[in-house]
Design a protein around this nucleic acid. Sequence first.
DNA 1: AGAGGTACCGCAAACGTTACCGAAAACCTT
DNA 2: AAGGTTTTCGGTAACGTTTGCGGTACCTCT
Lengths: 381, 381
Amino acid sequence: MIRCKKCGEVGYIKKSGKVRGRQRYYCKDCKVYFSEEQEDKSPVAHQHQVTITDLARHLNLSASTVSRALHKHPDINLATQKKVLDLAARLDYQPNMLASSLVKSKSFTIGIVVPEFINSFFPNVILGAEEVLAKAGYKLVICHSNESYEREVENVKLLLSSRVDGFLISLTQETKKYDHLKAIVAKGIPLVLYNRICTEVDVPKVTVNDYEGAFKATEHLILNGYRKVAHIAGPQTLQIAQSRITGYKDALKKYEIPVNEDWIRHCDLSFEGAKRTAAYLFDLENSPDAIFAMNDTIAVEVIQLAKMRGISIPAQLAVVGFSDDIIAQFIGLTTMAQPVREIGKAAARLVLQRLKNRDVHIESKILSTSLVIRSSSSHNH
Amino acid sequence: MIRCKKCGEVGYIKKSGKVRGRQRYYCKDCKVYFSEEQEDKSPVAHQHQVTITDLARHLNLSASTVSRALHKHPDINLATQKKVLDLAARLDYQPNMLASSLVKSKSFTIGIVVPEFINSFFPNVILGAEEVLAKAGYKLVICHSNESYEREVENVKLLLSSRVDGFLISLTQETKKYDHLKAIVAKGIPLVLYNRICTEVDVPKVTVNDYEGAFKATEHLILNGYRKVAHIAGPQTLQIAQSRITGYKDALKKYEIPVNEDWIRHCDLSFEGAKRTAAYLFDLENSPDAIFAMNDTIAVEVIQLAKMRGISIPAQLAVVGFSDDIIAQFIGLTTMAQPVREIGKAAARLVLQRLKNRDVHIESKILSTSLVIRSSSSHNH
DNA sequence: AGAGGTACCGCAAACGTTACCGAAAACCTT
DNA sequence: AAGGTTTTCGGTAACGTTTGCGGTACCTCT
């Protein structure tokens, strides 16, 4: 039984609108609207953190003075500053970044989206980026797309909503549309692509010299006497996969080894995909005696399968990976090392530059790779 | 040459306060303060994202109506709603979470801090937590402390500043003080500890049955004929390290094998520390024939060193790890598997519960482990 | 044709900070 | 001492949203 607050007990109350939780009512006597009583209103706000106004009240100061004191503004008397700082420490005051970012329309955070972080590659990129950003007073918020295009788009939206000041993005293997990236650029927010890049958007990019890396990796196999070199490539959507294929092919051409298209197999970046592709190559009538894999994860799967089938490495089969993932050294995988940490740092430096100066065109950065020779491709190791 | 705006060209202007970038001046004629002209004022705000007020202006509506339309409030005419939604889509409107979190004093984000994420353990925890939280409409913001106590404290402060609604924390190996955790509890913000927990704060915790896991791992070694079982433990500060030691000792006791304190070595969670400790055990006059390592990373280092020294595994030395990290299967490491993903899920569920009902005491959750036997401890594998 | 109801929308306050502007008080000058 | 300076502080608007409350215009009954 709902009663009007003004005319007391009278029941002249009729139902009206349908607001969120509770209903609204109308009293024809008082000609007034009102809503249900909030009985479950928790009596005590359970999460009131200390605010600047609290500090001001305690010290008989204005909010602006407290704010300035906290920021050590020279206009404030040192004694007052000390009083404020002391109380802030005593009450464990934590500034509300939401409010401050809102008025400054700047959040001092950079959003990074990684497609995956089970392998050590992206975590290391993050570490590198964080190092540089921290020095510049920026925080890094990490999102991972889990190799899903939808999640990538969601992540971008989320970060846009959080009003990050800049983006560091590495694409998923399924990403074929780039509207979400273009939207970032259109809004004038600095964006840097790294590792998994695309050519469709005109922003600074950080990559390693994939072509050269693939070339050298393939050359290394050839020079070690392997003539039947296959390549397990990444998804066709990936720019880096394409570059590595070209590098692979060109290395073969240099040594006048015909390219066998059957030995170039695309595969997605899952364990199963890798295993399936490895099996395909093994089962070939004319099977290769060396495999250059797009990345270490795939290379490891190749080695695993080879072991299971009793194929000895590197006698019967040589394997070279890409990245020098942590796991590579444990299983003696020859691999093309990337300066992973440096990729993150470089990307971070580029956003910061862009943040400082939005107008000038900023160059992309191409880092170089280096071959780490281990036992999977050479008898001497 | 600075001139007073009011009295025109007259130079009666004297220097005054010292504000941020520019100076403030005082004109004794006009008796008025003013500051330098902002000449470098960029003519166009370079980052104005579309706001609700923009939409309102375009549609001749009030901000409140637009807000309600975006949230599909029933009070709004469907035609108006559609107009708003369409325009929002066309202009790629992204709600400003800063503002909305501010007024609702709720951010719908949970902060998770991990000590490290080079190994696959914590990334998987994150994946699990995210899955649960996403379903409940929460976002997860990831911070990593890099095994540094200071960074852990900083992370907590950062997350407090970001006004996260809850915390998921796993401690670093150096954490001995818990004031930062107590501060969270004092503020009434839900906190759940997982994996690297401590007993000093009374909050729900998620762990695996470390004692039992260690017991079984040790027992497995004993039952496979190894009598001289050593244990490389984690840092003494870690609760889980202690539990595992107890499990290890109790297993020995069960089979009436005397505990050799020389064979229990603490080590920090770095590669170097692990290697050093392994070397110590190898160099012992009476060296063990089996090692139960605190985690897989250490176990892997043990195996690496053994290989280098020509110690055959498992003939001369058996090794068992803990976690079933990705790497374990590649190198055939016997290990105690933890339901990693589940740890994240459980922790997430606990914060959510706590968020719903702040008063009731919430039970901690202990998940169970299972032994995965591979070639590092058994000839049959 | 009123009267009572409903559908739809706007006003304004609030969230916690920051920053511009101004002003009182304290401090120096002659 | 009187005026000029400087120091130190407060008022206030603004950032973009949300939401309670209230109003107008229309509709639907007798």
